[in-house]
Amino acid sequence: MEDTGSIVAFWLLAALTLGSALAVVLIRDLIRAVVLLITSFLGVAGLYITLSADFVAVVQVLIYVGAISVLMLFAIMLTPRAGRNNAETFFRIPGILLAGLMAFTISLVSLDTDWAVVERGGFEETASAIGEALLDKYVLPFELAAVLLLVAMLGAILLVHPEGTDEE
């Protein structure tokens, strides 16, 4: 991580991620907030690439940018008479205080700790190693994740299914 290109890439992607995250907080219109959230997710995907995590970056683009954001847009579009504004509740001041305290504490700790990093360089490519780990060491969580996704999908369908309108 010494060459100029990766340093410039880090600062640009960090500015993109944090800037659009702040814009998501400040902007009033929910639809625009979701679009800016997509930009923030893309920035995080770029940061994964600077950390040589290629597979996770692709998964981030596919699932966060492609699926979760579209789900949020669906939820906004399907609730047309609900408020479309992105305003705060009365928790605004405590929220700002707590979030600021959180950022301050974590930053202080991460600057204060001696992480004793041994520089090993990035990975060549990660997809095959992740695949082997998923089917070898982490096979039980992998199968549980499959069941979890199935149950969540069935639950979501069952929840929004209109009552008393069975097919035919």
Binding site: T17, V24, A75, E88, G95, I96, G100, M102, I106, S107
Partner: peptide, 21 residues
């Protein structure tokens, strides 16, 4: 630190936003 800042922005949104989305 980038992660901490992003987490704090998310925490503030989860605490203070009025709309469920």
């Amino acid at each position: 630190i980038l992660g901490a800042l992003l987490f704090s922005i998310g925490l503030y949104m989860a605490l203070a936003k009025r709309n469920f989305v």
